[in-house]
């Protein structure tokens, strides 16, 4: 079995683009601005798994936030529920979409009052899978 962490390390700290054939590729990363008076943002992106193994993202962190959680919003019978999830699983050769009203990252307590750029680090256990940067979005 190939070493997934070794493969994934090739993508570390790189800006992956749509034509990228790295093991994990992130598209359309967006971090919403913390709304005035609030201390949280949301992170959305698509992530494609180019490997032959399932990838489990079990935690995330950002130097710009004190905490990052994996969350999912579901709406059933007109009622929206948001819950933390243990992992985001990307099957081999597939793309997982983190989107509004679905799976997303919840970024809590920004460490600085003004946020311009956010770095996100995605982990499987203690293994750093991927690190990506983006400008904070505007509504």
């Amino acid at each position: 079995m190939r070493s997934l962490p070794l493969l994934l390390s090739l993508c570390l700290l790189s800006a992956c683009g749509p034509a990228d054939d790295s093991p994990l590729v992130v598209y359309g990363l967006e971090v919403t601005p913390p709304r005035p008076g609030m201390n949280m943002s949301a992170g959305y992106f698509e992530i494609h798994n180019n490997t032959g193994d399932a990838v489990r993202i079990t935690r995330a962190e950002s130097p710009q936030f004190e905490a990052v959680e994996l969350h999912e919003t579901t709406t059933v019978d007109g009622v929206s529920r948001m819950r933390p999830v243990d992992a985001l699983v990307i099957a081999p050769g597939t793309t997982l979409k983190l989107e509004r009203g679905g799976k997303h990252l919840m970024l809590m307590r920004p460490v600085e009052a003004s946020l311009e750029t956010v770095e996100l680090r995605l982990y499987s256990g203690d293994t750093l899978l991927l690190s990506v940067n983006t400008q904070v979005a505007s509504d």
Binding site: T32, R35, G37, M38, M40, S41, A42, H71, T73, T75, S80, M82, R100, G101, H104, M106, L107, D139
Partner: peptide, 16 residues
């Protein structure tokens, strides 16, 4: 509610 990072600001931004 304001501590809702996903569906609430998304809906309010849509209305706005």
């Amino acid at each position: 509610f304001t501590h809702c990072p996903d569906i609430c600001p998304t809906t309010l931004a849509t209305l706005s």
